[in-house]
């Protein structure tokens, strides 16, 4: 029984045209239950395509994706969503602005269940949401009835993170979820993520452009390049990893200079 297994996944966009992009060229990756894996790589490395394949947004050309031992490769995004929590880069993507904080959480609390004519919000649910929100430390527990559109980007992303994990998903997918935030909010969300993932032992796959973040967070670091996994660093070796060390490892494997298209080596 594993958390997530990705087996020989290939994906080519626009095959047979001049625009052909071989986004994934055979990815094999296994996450143990409760394992927290960070994925780094330059633009076009295939990180987002990989995450979207797991989420069911993209259907792989070849290969299988198993969630908790169950093959979900042929399941739609909506079917899989019952077991997958996601936070995307855009802090506006994970919440509905004209619904209240409580209403957004109610939608998330029903993830994986069919929606019927039960009341979406009850006094008990409000209390539960207030308790969960209090753990964010942002004072959102006092704003249950405020529309989410009134919140800041950082607050909305914190809410998105809570919504993604409220139902304890089998896997949490984080797609550069701190990249669009200001540095303070980004640090806050990174801390929250780490605390949340550890506290609930969530199997987590996190993409980031931020090498420092990728080194500091998670049990294992995966370096992707041109649709392949170049190497992974885990255990004690990852504990002592530095950005320079990561760069040297890249250059050793690739035999070429490590160029990073976004100058966000740290922060």
């Amino acid at each position: 029984m594993t958390g997530l297994t990705i087996e020989g996944v290939h994906k080519t966009f626009f095959p047979g045209t001049v625009n052909e992009v071989r986004a994934l060229r055979g990815i094999d990756l296994t996450l143990e239950p409760g394992e927290f894996v960070t994925v780094v790589g330059s633009n076009g490395a295939g990180k987002s395509t990989l995450l979207n394949s797991v989420a069911g947004v993209i259907a792989p050309d070849r290969g299988r994706i198993l969630l908790g031992g169950v093959d979900v490769t042929r399941q739609s995004e909506v079917q899989r969503a019952a077991r997958i929590g996601r936070v995307l880069q855009n802090p506006l993507a994970g919440t509905a602005p004209s619904l209240t904080v409580a209403e957004n959480l109610a939608l998330a609390a029903a993830r994986g269940r069919s929606r019927g004519l039960r009341w979406a919000l009850t006094a008990a649910k409000r209390r539960q949401f207030a308790e969960e929100l209090a753990q964010l430390g942002l004072g959102l527990e006092n704003r249950l009835n405020d529309k989410v559109g009134l919140l800041s980007g950082g607050q909305r992303q914190a809410l998105s993170l809570l919504m993604a994990t409220l139902q304890r998903p089998d896997i949490l997918l984080l797609d550069e979820h701190t990249a669009a935030l200001d540095p303070r909010a980004a640090a806050l969300i990174a801390d929250l993520t780490n605390r949340w993932v550890r506290q609930h032992r969530l199997t987590t796959l996190m993409i980031t452009h931020n090498l420092e973040q990728a080194i500091r967070l998670g049990d294992r670091l995966v370096m992707m390049h041109e649709g392949r996994i170049l190497f992974t660093v885990g255990g004690a070796e990852k504990q002592g990893l530095t950005i320079d060390g990561l760069r040297q490892a890249f250059e050793r494997v690739r035999g070429e200079e490590f160029t990073y298209d976004r100058a966000v080596l740290a922060n």
Binding site: V78, A96, A108, A120, M163
Partner: peptide
């Protein structure tokens, strides 16, 4: 105010989120 009704309202607001939440 029901779960179904709320999902309906959320669809007009952010249909990508609605799909992420399994609706």
């Amino acid at each position: 105010r029901t779960e179904l009704g709320l999902s309906l309202r959320a669809t007009g607001d952010n249909d990508g989120m609605v799909r992420m939440l399994g609706v």
